[in-house]
Amino acid sequence: MIKYLPTHEYINVVDNDTALVGVSAYAARQLGNVVYVEAPEADEEFSAGEAFGAIESVKAASDLFAPLDMVIIEANDQVLDNSRLINEDALANWIVKVKILDPSQLDSLMDQDTYDAHCAAEH
């Protein structure tokens, strides 16, 4: 199951309480060449809506927001070392693997169709 935030983060739920968080392909296109991704260390805890990292392209920078209450399991070192991977495949190249603290919060996030409509409206 993949859900989205209005700020273009996705959360890809891989099992009951584990998920991969990254930015959507749409966001990656808007940013252009991603030159840097900043992610927290393992065990750091974030509540929904809190900034947990940052993503930078040559022309823009933006914070990354937690889709829900979560604890960092690990950051994707491959992406941190080569942030342009996000431009190649944003979904495969997640930024952090997290432990979901409250699965009920998933309900309030956007599904694919809602998110697509959101992007279309934004443009």
Partner: peptide
């Protein structure tokens, strides 16, 4: 370089 951090792009952030 590293201009994305600069105020004129990040504004209130």
């Amino acid at each position: 370089t590293l201009q994305a951090r600069e105020q004129h792009i990040r504004r209130e952030k």
